[in-house]
Design a protein around this nucleic acid. Structure first.
Lengths: 110, 110
DNA sequence: ATTATATATATAAACAGATTACATACGCGG
DNA sequence: CCGCGTATGTAATCTGTTTATATATATAAT
């Protein structure tokens, strides 16, 4: 992780939910996608993403099923639930607030 | 805290450094200032700010001295060091990156 | 043939910053 | 004199991330 890992804390789930909103996906693909979309700055660790999946599944934010695994290692796919979609909406709103406020608190004012 | 407390994690020090950049201050005042500037959304807990001070003093980001305490409870003032100023600059740059990237990762794209 | 690399998932133990709960103490208004 | 706002502090706990380790398949390189 190019950033201190604390920076992502609290946003990891939101980012995963956002990706699953588009289409079902799996751990490895999501990790690569985030690395790509973040210009290489956010490199979520295996353990982080898989423990996040466990947590989110327990919270009924996502559902899981095994892919057929043809042509490579087996994949466990995840799909967002209605509860997950609602949480994403809340987290998005929260982010818009945080973004505005942190910009005010952190940036130098003139 | 109106936000999940994980949201602030990793930014608490940066916000404190930013405030100390303007003038020396103390825990209670900084907490109130952040509550004010954040429209009441960021209510840093006592334990959080005082443990942050300890950490930052150990890291030589800040210096501390007792206020004279005239007219009320004693105050412990904090002052930012050169090391603290440099860290603030780094954290500000980091925030500019994070802000751009998280907006891309979290917001709905058209 | 075998070795390295990319793909893919998983768990236990350790780490670190934030919270909860508790404790202390001063000054002021009613 | 009692409550409230001001002001600081610590111990125990919580929680998400990391480090370390393990397993397994397919493909490219030597």
């Amino acid at each position: 992780m190019a950033f201190s890992s604390d920076i992502l804390r609290g946003h990891t789930e939101t980012v995963i939910l956002k990706i699953l909103l588009e289409k079902d996906s799996y751990g490895y693909e999501i990790t690569k996608r985030i690395l790509d979309d973040s210009e290489g700055l956010i490199d979520i660790k295996d353990a982080t993403i898989y423990t996040a999946f466990r947590r989110m599944e327990l919270d009924a934010l996502i559902l899981t099923y095994w892919g057929d695994g043809i042509g490579g290692a087996r994949r466990r796919y995840y799909s967002i639930t209605d509860k997950g979609k609602n949480l994403y909406k809340d987290k998005l709103d929260e982010w818009l607030d945080i973004d505005r406020i942190l910009n005010r608190l952190i940036r130098k004012q003139k």
